[in-house]
Simulated scan of single mutants.
Amino acid sequence: MTSLTPHAAQIATDLAADQKSAEVTDWAARIGWLVGLVLFIALVYWLMREGWKWRGTLQGDLPELPAVPEEPGDARLSMSGRYHGSTTAGQWLDRIVAHGLGTRSRAELSLTDAGLDVVRPGAADFFVPRAQLREARLDKGIAGKVLTEGGLLVVTWEHGGKLIDSGFRSDHAAEHTEWVDTLNHMIDKSNDTEGAR
């Protein structure tokens, strides 16, 4: 067995010491970065909230939504699912937030002879009178929500001189086609009745 020279032994000892010592953490710098990151995220959320409120202010000319009539009639169709939002018709990124229409939520839809009743737990309910319904179609997206082709029921309606698209997704997507057919038939029948007057 060979013995190490004193110089070689010192080098071996220094290498072993270097491997065992850990770098000291600069906690002040890490905490500073963390606080800066939290403040940046808070600023972004505050700006988003202010933008949402500003959009609601810009849409302040939209009148109050109609109330559900006392006698809406029997439900032709009903559906449980999600309400994904409303936009200006044909402009699927121009979200409408006035009167709570921008709030995504669960929804219970009922189609009666009086119109479309949308009950939303935790958000404002709304009602679309039959005379204001314009079209129903299957689509794939609305205001930041993109689904598979035909995965969204979009109902176009008129309110305050403005055409609005509202997007719904049933818990059972197979119901969408029946809703489109029934709504469009009901709208065509209403248009024929108005044209005969």
Rank of each mutant, 00 (worst) to 15 (best):
Q10K: 07
F126R: 01
D94P: 14
V119R: 11
G60H: 06
T112A: 01
W54G: 14
M1V: 03
G81M: 15
G56F: 07
Y45P: 08
E149T: 11
R130D: 08
G115I: 06
R130C: 04
L58P: 05
D113F: 12
V118M: 06
M79H: 02
H176E: 09
H185L: 03
T5I: 10
N184C: 00
I142H: 05
A143F: 15
K189E: 00
R82C: 14
K140C: 12
I11F: 02
H99W: 03
D192A: 01
D165E: 14
P129Q: 00
V155I: 04
A136P: 00
L133R: 11
S80Y: 06
D181M: 03
D113P: 04
A107T: 12
F168Q: 07
W179P: 00
P6E: 05
R30Q: 08
R104F: 11
V119Y: 05
R134S: 12
R49K: 08
L152I: 09
L62E: 09
E64H: 12
R55P: 15
D192F: 08
K140V: 12
G150N: 10
Q91M: 12
T156D: 00
A75M: 05
L37Y: 10
P72V: 02
W27M: 12
V154E: 14
A107C: 14
L65M: 01
A8S: 11
A136G: 03
G160E: 10
V24Y: 05
S110M: 07
A107V: 02
V128Q: 00
H159W: 13
L34V: 07
E175H: 14
G81T: 06
V180R: 08
N184G: 00
G85T: 03
L39M: 10
L116F: 05
T156H: 02
R76K: 14
Q10E: 08
L62P: 15
D181S: 05
L93H: 15
L58K: 06
P129F: 00
L109K: 04
S105K: 02
R95D: 11
I164G: 13
M79R: 13
V155F: 02
E71H: 06
D171F: 12
L111G: 15
H185R: 04
G151S: 15
H176Y: 09
S190K: 11
A136S: 01
Q59P: 05
G60Y: 04
E64G: 05
H172S: 11
G36D: 10
V146E: 02
V68M: 10
L101I: 00
D125C: 09
M186Y: 02
R169G: 04
S80W: 12
F127W: 04
D14N: 08
G144C: 15
T87V: 01
G56S: 11
G90M: 11
A22P: 10
D139R: 09
P129R: 08
P72E: 02
L138Q: 13
A17C: 10
